[in-house]
Design a binder for these strands. Structure first.
Lengths: 221, 221
DNA sequence: TGATTAATGTACGAACTGGTTCGTTAGTGA
DNA sequence: TCACTAACGAACCAGTTCGTACATTAATCA
């Protein structure tokens, strides 16, 4: 997330379209993640910016488009992280485990992103559907998974004929749920899934689960 | 969900506190699930009821308490379903698989509940925390899992020393994500996780995953 | 340097929204 | 049957919220 940093200017108001735009996006990201789409207040976003509400409409057109822009930028961050994935030098088992761990880490590091995705799901992904940029981003991680699975299958390490998208769903679901549902889960079961001292435990558990699934003897039961 | 059914009364307005209350809850459940807390409109809820907004405040006090009441009733439904769980006559492996499948089915059958839980997580579970009823419901399913795990461990079928809450989280995360994130996942990866013709596939996949994890030889890698 | 325009700020308004006030009526028990 | 109360409805209100009209100024370039 390219957060806007202070250029340490000398007091006086100056003009910087890119900076203003980026600052609005930064603040809007936090506000939409905090309160959801309907709960987010345009006035509140403007107030936390060095500029005014007028600029939000000037640059983005409206609340709806602002949210779409926030989503686009948020997704571009993972896409970028996925492009830097470097696990294919590992053997298939280690590669999948590493991939799962990186997914785990990314989810933990970006709770705002997870809240935005939850919000977008409440809206049935209508903003993604309406965005050209988002409709076609695909997922670099998916290609990586595909190749690792093929290698694992070939070397006989992976018994199952698992689909890459399915495996991605499996890994994501655990990582996502752990963050998105931590509050209700914590309140109902008295366990903080994101507690620091549980981090390694759940990270390992995810890897164990995925590897167990991929290497299991499916004929046993 | 005890939905209010028409008592087929003969035209004239009559009084029925229980019915009015229940009808408000029914409509509110749908509205909060549809639009989230902030997005839900008290006027809209009232309009879809045979009564007026006045009654919402008469019976529940306000929007916030109405949402809490909606949550309480929604959670009571799963609690009840969990109490009817009957899997312990099966061997541990079959019992866990069956439990996972029932969880899977329940999530699929109650998308509104899943949306409500997502909404409550956006609010950091503050309504659950504030509700005496919800703060202490616990989970009958958890006790069932505990006993199955103990049996499986004893008979040597389950290699791992897995915690019941963790296993519940693992099962729930997949079931929950599949429904809660189906829209963004579908938009981004072109796969509908809740498509009818994929149902058995994912149901089996969940069972395979959980059993593989529980029966895996953790010393291999 | 002066004209042009991109960028910005102020003030305002129309519609909405949660909540309330006030009055009414159906059932119930003495 | 009559007084009492739980249940109910219509209208209203005050604060909020998205969006805009209008005025202004900093950069840019001929």
């Amino acid at each position: 997330m390219t957060t806007v940093e202070e250029p340490a200017r000398s007091g006086g108001r100056q003009r910087d379209a890119a900076r203003t735009r980026a600052e609005i996006l930064d603040v809007a990201t936090k506000e939409f993640a905090r309160a959801g789409y309907a709960g987010a207040r345009v006035d509140e976003i403007a107030a936390r910016t060095r500029t005014t509400k007028r600029m939000i409409y000037y640059y983005f057109g409206g609340k709806e488009q602002l949210f779409t822009a926030v989503l686009e930028r948020a997704y571009s961050v993972i896409r970028q992280a996925e492009q830097e994935l470097d696990v294919e030098h590992l053997d298939p088992v280690a590669a999948i485990r590493r991939l799962a761990e990186l997914t785990f880490d990314h989810h933990e590091a970006h709770p705002d992103f997870i809240r935005l995705v939850s919000v977008e799901n409440m809206h049935e992904a209508e903003h993604i559907a309406a965005s050209e940029e988002l409709a076609e981003i695909g997922s670099p991680a998916l290609e990586v998974i595909r190749r690792i699975l093929a290698a694992g299958r070939e070397s006989g390490l992976f018994t199952a004929d698992v689909d890459a998208v399915d495996l991605h769903a499996m890994i994501s679901s655990f990582c996502f749920f752990r963050v998105s549902n931590r509050h209700t889960f914590g309140a109902l079961f008295g366990r903080d899934l994101v507690a620091a001292d549980q981090r390694e435990h759940y990270r390992t558990m995810l890897g164990d689960m995925v590897i167990a699934y991929l290497t299991a003897d499916r004929t046993r039961d």
